[in-house]
């Protein structure tokens, strides 16, 4: 059996806020070229796990390797291969969309040719007009800001695309386009890691889905191995939520 290269490896992750332990020991491996989804109720620890993965937050225990690099000891190498889309659009909103994207591309060391090529391609895919990019981001709608965030996350050709609720605020057409882009990204041998509440969407797209419950991975559905499992994800998740409410 051929061993698949690991894109994201999380071992024994624990994270507390004060005395409250939010992540109680997560072990996870995501492979290159895989579409991996992460679902869980509010406060289950999805965003904290992602924040720990990409270096936004420190963690108390464990190790996270991204593309073979430790986020603790080689954060710069990790950041070079990551593209991240937060749940709430985030940018220097006084800048115009174009200037902001140029800034992000420059920080990631993208050259002029790649920037022009990527910007033209991505903005046309996400239906963001060049005239709009000349305006300050603060004047954009929520959806447009999210589109700028999506472009910013891909402008440097990352190997791993990490997204936290990326479809919030997007219209149906753009959501559809984004799902196509995610599929294409994976088809090119790259990795998608997405946290979402939209179970139907991720069930239709993901190779594997992990359900996080009370700070630990409760179950992983391998939909690539058994596509029929995609119909079990939603009922299982709902039963977990009910159990939580009963407790």
């Amino acid at each position: 059996m051929i061993e698949r290269p690991v894109a994201i490896s999380i071992q024994g992750l624990r994270k507390s806020y004060g005395s409250k332990e939010v992540i109680k020991g997560i072990d996870l491996e995501v492979f290159e070229g895989e579409f991996f989804a992460f679902i869980g109720a509010n406060g289950a620890g999805k965003s904290t796990t992602i924040d720990s993965m990409i270096g936004l937050k420190t963690f108390n225990q464990g190790e996270i390797l991204i593309d073979g690099h430790s986020i603790k000891t080689e954060p710069i190498e990790v950041k070079k291969v990551l593209g991240y889309v937060p749940s709430e659009p985030l940018s220097y909103s006084e800048m115009s969309g174009l200037r902001y994207l140029e800034f992000i591309a420059s920080v990631f060391g993208v050259n002029d040719v790649t920037f022009d090529k990527n910007l033209t391609y991505l903005s046309s895919r996400l239906d963001l007009k060049m005239e709009d990019l000349a305006r300050p981001i603060k004047e954009y709608s929520h959806g447009m800001q999210q589109k700028v965030g999506l472009i910013a996350s891909l402008i440097h050709n990352p190997k791993i695309w990490v997204m936290d609720e990326p479809t919030v605020g997007l219209d149906a057409v753009t959501t559809h386009e984004l799902t196509l882009m995610m599929k294409e990204f994976v088809d090119h041998g790259r990795t998608v890691f997405i946290a979402s509440h939209n179970i139907e969407l991720v069930s239709a797209l993901a190779d594997r889905i992990a359900i996080i419950y009370d700070g630990v991975i409760n179950r992983i559905f391998d939909l690539k191995a058994d596509p029929g499992l995609r119909y079990e994800v939603s009922p299982y998740f709902l039963s977990l939520s009910q159990r939580r409410n009963e407790l």
């Binding site: 220097y92 420059s106 005239e131 990019l133 000349a134």
Partner: peptide, 24 residues
């Protein structure tokens, strides 16, 4: 609507961060 202008061009990360700092 302002016309989109190419040509600010990419800079080094350090220069980009300096420009951003001026902006902030």
């Amino acid at each position: 609507k302002e016309k989109w202008a190419h040509g600010h061009g990419m800079t080094s990360p350090v220069r980009a961060l300096i420009k951003k700092e001026f902006f902030v």
